[in-house]
Nucleic acid binder design. Structure first.
Lengths: 243, 243
DNA sequence: GAGTGGTCTAGACCACTCA
DNA sequence: GAGTGGTCTAGACCACTCA
């Protein structure tokens, strides 16, 4: 029998929610693992099933858990490639969906520029790793990414051959550095392309590009990665439903 | 005592949800009005309070209803100006938020171009009303909007002086035409500005602009309005949280 | 057939609103 | 103090999964 600590003025479902979120944050269960059944949770914390359900419902809505009727409730592994798919339409001439290729231009240790240090919550000039890569579709570059990582957590990346590990970085972070990306904030604007990115994207200087900045965090809300990507406007479309 | 019609294979909370959504869609209660209390709903439909609550919860999440503890549950009046605020940062030099002004260039009856007819679900050449206006901040234009409406529902707009009615169109639609916008879909991309919009926005030809297309619908999902807006990229920033 | 989440009941008591 | 939504209980039965 466990006790929910926390502020006793909060409702029970909220306290259970926070408690479970905390356990997930501290890797008490790994992504893909099942949490205890609802019956087990209600006896363990002496709560009715309705109250347990309300706490779990909220975690499911937040994307931390996933229910499978008849099987159990599982810790979700975030799927971030969907973000790129939301922003860009990857259609071949035949109209099929395609995974963009990835070409890494450089990976090197540097001192954090001010903007990067602020985004990652580091002191100025803290050691960071910068990766420059370009994403391509049918051999056509459409997105140029600069990726900044705190060296303290990501040093192992300098010793592996990123090119052979496939285009998705987040599984690589987990495999080699034990860092799991849980949340991200993105912001988006448009600009005329400068000469550096014009060359990377192989488009004329001053063409329109979208600029996407992303800050990714782990379950404990610690910033793990800051990215700035320049994307070819022609390939870009973003959709939202309101209310 | 009422009966829930609909597919009896669906769970009760779902059927109540659909039934209430239907009532809201057909203006059984007007925006701002209270729906029956949870106790009243549970006796009327012979459901337990938990089941009623689950149906109402969903409608609250979808933004159709709003709860006020101790007072009741109310039909929500959609607040669409928030959309513009999500996309653009309206800061004066002093850092305050500001409502952008609105300057109407033209309002005229036309035949629907193919693209507009398709978006609004009309036959080609159906009668429509086109409004051209520019939004300004500190006298600086930052957004040029073309707004297309089916004449069948919006003819009264041709007989009023839009300029004196304030910058928000949706309340005007409701007041003069009885049309309530409930949902909208927006999609967003970036381009080099053409000469028409360069002039409206007072920026050089080929500057980067964001292009926002919006289709607004009523509660019955009927398309009411299609907009295409060209916005000055310098003022534009969009943010999302992922998972 | 044992175990899981999904739906639903019939309440009780609390916190808040408003006359 | 009457009426509202907010929290919570202690179950029952169903639909689905998997050995």
């Amino acid at each position: 029998m466990h006790a929910l600590s926390k502020d006793t003025r909060l409702p029970l479902y909220q306290r259970l929610h926070d408690h479970l979120a905390q356990q997930i944050a501290t890797n008490h269960w790994r992504p893909g693992e099942a949490i205890p059944t609802e019956a087990a949770l209600s006896t363990e914390y002496r709560l009715s099933t309705g109250t347990v359900r309300k706490a779990v419902d909220a975690l499911v809505n937040e994307g931390l858990l996933e229910r499978q009727q008849g099987r159990g409730t599982f810790v979700r592994r975030p799927q971030f490639q969907s973000s790129l798919f939301r922003f860009f339409r990857f259609q071949t001439a035949a109209g099929e969906r395609q995974i963009p290729e990835s070409r890494i231009f450089s990976i090197e240790p540097l001192s954090a520029p001010l903007e990067v240090a602020q985004a990652l919550g580091l002191s100025a000039d803290a050691p960071v790793i910068r990766i420059i890569r370009v994403r391509l579709l049918d051999g056509q570059p459409f997105l140029a990414e600069e990726i900044w990582l705190p060296s303290a957590r990501f040093r192992p990346l300098l010793d592996i051959n990123l090119a052979v590990e496939g285009p998705l970085l987040y599984p690589i972070y987990e495999k080699f550095c034990g860092q799991v990306v849980a949340y991200a904030e993105e912001s988006l604007t448009a600009q005329s392309v400068d000469d550096v990115h014009a060359q990377l994207l192989q488009i004329p200087v001053s063409s329109p590009v979208v600029v996407i900045e992303r800050l990714a965090r782990d379950y404990a809300d610690t910033p793990l990665e800051w990215r700035r990507s320049h994307g070819h406007a022609k390939f870009f479309r973003y959709s939202v439903d309101i209310r």
